[in-house]
Design a protein around this nucleic acid. Structure first.
Lengths: 193, 193
DNA sequence: TAAATATAAACCAAGTTACTAGTTTTGTCA
DNA sequence: TGACAAAACTAGTAACTTGGTTTATATTTA
């Protein structure tokens, strides 16, 4: 979704071709190691946007080298973009992979939930360390936006670590509660009872 | 990925058929409004897992009604599952849609970044309110796991809100910094230096 | 007929792997 | 000095994977 809308937004500034869009995006998010977007993704997204009528091919340059398909925003593309800016970004509510893993580890024999937590904590600390290092290497005079993005991720990692401690402390309690295992219900409309 | 691995984990307990797996998953994550998984996703995932050789059809029950394809875990499926439990869940590092939107709003005319922040804050407060309500309606004697999952999401939302304030306070500063227009890299073979 | 179990086929959107092919610059060697 | 290979950039295509949705189905039972 981000890449898609970013393309629309760049094309709202002026018509561009695929490679130009890729560079613009990478510059915006902070380069390869932050959000490396592969060239192919730009082009597949462009064709999908064109199919949807949100952009159109304006012209094809060919100054000696390979072709440059120049895309431009259509009216409906502009509307879509404005709708995006006007709406909020919903969080991935409750779809937490680690939570699922932890719950499953409680009901799977041969797997220790404490070990699962331990492993996860190790990974989180690792990621936290990497990010703080990279954050401290950034220049606040020119890369403030990047630093703020680092801060956001760091805050999330710290929250995850606090949560992990919380869960670990109450794991016995969770384990004592009945596991939510539904038995297969009988076929057909349920009895009125 | 979660659904996929959850299926493997359920099949590790005992062989089951599609609908049974769906019920097990919904019971685990807490029902429709938390993580509604459509039946079709279970079946598509099952066929993909079978193609990958991680599960196999053990038998087909047919007690009068429609067939029930019973799936079982294979050895390589068990290995895969253990690998999953043994590894950590990596966070979606730095791929933040709202950050992209905010940055784009700075360089798109006709869009106010303050408005974008305002809208997002409204949505976050809304989500926070909904979650705290639902959390308070849960029973800690029987749904402790669910409550902890609510807590995790709530902690993330709170972090997002704090971050939003932080960013808003420094928005002028960000705006004064040069927009990261893509720097064109030097072409050709790099100098030996 | 209403409501539930149980499954299948077709499709979709985001993103990846692997590839082609030309361009520009630098390094090196005969 | 001239030829040429090496390395990186520019620009794009095709095929595939993955996670998920839409829609349609048949069956059972109150």
């Amino acid at each position: 979704m981000s890449v898609r809308n970013a393309i629309l937004s760049f094309l709202a500034q002026r018509p561009r071709h695929g490679y130009e869009l890729r560079n613009a995006f990478e510059a915006l998010v902070g380069g390869e190691d932050t959000w490396g977007v592969k060239p192919a993704q730009i082009y597949t997204t462009l064709t999908r946007l064109e199919e949807a009528g949100l952009i159109c091919q304006e012209s094809v340059e060919q100054d000696g080298g390979p072709e440059k398909r120049i895309y431009a925003l259509t009216e409906s593309g502009l509307l879509e973009l404005q709708a995006w800016f006007g709406s909020g970004v919903e969080s991935e509510h409750q779809r937490d992979e680690f939570f699922v893993k932890l719950m499953l580890s409680l009901s799977t024999e041969g797997v220790s939930p404490y070990r699962v937590i331990h492993t996860q904590r190790g990974l989180l600390y690792q990621e936290l360390h990497d990010l703080t290092t990279r954050r401290s290497r950034s220049n606040p005079k020119t890369e403030l936006a990047q630093i703020l993005l680092f801060d956001k991720t760091i805050m999330h990692l710290e929250a995850d670590l606090r949560w992990l401690d919380m869960v670990e402390a109450r794991l016995d309690e969770i384990q004592r509660q009945p596991l939510p295992e539904p038995e297969s219900k009988p076929r057909g409309r349920p009895k009125k009872s």
